[in-house]
């Protein structure tokens, strides 16, 4: 119990430290939000035009707009910079500091990610409430208290699924040093199978089936589906179980990769 409290205090310290850094780089926040919104706008225009011209699309134009608005927000809330930051630190030899610190890297990265999240949320929340009010007044979906509660659980699980996936993939740099190609594959898969590029229900049935067992859906699309009340309680529970299974698998894979990979780490920088 004492160890957990110490770890939480450490995460809290990192969180506050990173918050201070955000106050220095204020423009970064604005750029970050704008860049996250531009791409969903492009996708939404494509599918909105399609919906206007098609009679058999399962989503209406308004539903598509609301989906992409929520996706843009969710992508920011569950986003982690761990993969990008850590793989570069390993490659450049700056990973050594984590090995020398009395506290490990996990607490540090969790604290850093959560400071990003809280700052983004604080900036986006007013817009989100306005959008929600507009969308709900048009009867696009019904938000209930239980939906909101389940949504928070889904978001917390999503952040851990994303975090440990990032940690595992970044530590592969201990073996292969440069992971630019892997990064491209990761982002492409994340955007397509997470539902950022296309709403998952619009994918062919076989592809939609695959997304249900991949981790990407549970980082972006699943919390939105829970929030909008689009899936049954049974599916929600199944989703939570899959999330927890992924967290365990990712954590175990991270331990293996770290233990074997650290023997290859040269700490020089390349």
């Amino acid at each position: 119990m004492g160890k957990i409290v110490i770890e939480l205090k450490y995460i809290w310290s990192v969180f506050l430290l990173k918050l201070d850094m955000w106050s220095v780089y204020r423009l970064k926040l604005i750029v970050w939000i704008i860049s996250g919104i531009l791409e969903p706008i492009i996708w939404s225009v494509l599918w909105y035009v399609t919906a206007q011209e098609s009679a058999d699309l399962v989503m209406s134009g308004a539903e598509i707009l609301s989906y992409y608005l929520l996706t843009a927000l969710m992508n920011r809330i569950t986003r982690s910079w761990t993969f990008d930051t850590l793989r570069k630190e390993i490659r450049e030899g700056r990973y050594t500091k984590y090995l020398l610190w009395p506290k490990g890297i996990i607490g540090f990265r969790i604290g850093a990610d959560w400071s990003d999240r809280v700052v983004t949320l604080a900036a986006l929340l007013p817009f989100w409430f306005i959008w929600l009010f507009i969308l709900q007044s048009k009867g696009l979906f019904e938000v209930t208290i239980s939906n909101i509660g389940l949504f928070f659980v889904a978001v917390i699980l999503a952040t851990f699924v994303r975090f440990y996936l990032d940690m595992f993939l970044a530590h592969l740099a201990l073996f292969w040093v440069k992971l630019d190609g892997l990064s491209t594959v990761y982002w492409s898969a994340y955007r397509l199978f997470g539902g950022i590029t296309v709403p998952l229900v619009l994918l062919p049935a076989w592809a939609f089936g695959i997304t249900k067992i991949m981790p990407f859906r549970y980082v972006v699309s699943f919390p939105i589906e829970v929030f909008q009340g689009l899936i049954s309680n049974e599916e929600i529970i199944r989703g939570f179980i899959i999330c927890m299974a992924w967290i365990i698998v990712e954590y175990a894979a991270l331990q293996v990769v770290f233990r074997v990979g650290i023997k290859n780490y040269e700490s020089v920088g390349a």
Partner: peptide, 17 residues
């Protein structure tokens, strides 16, 4: 040419993308 794994992954990512 130094990072051969990355080179292979880049080609794979190209096909996937």
């Amino acid at each position: 040419a130094v990072y051969r794994f990355d080179m292979l992954f880049r080609l794979f990512s190209m096909i996937l993308m």
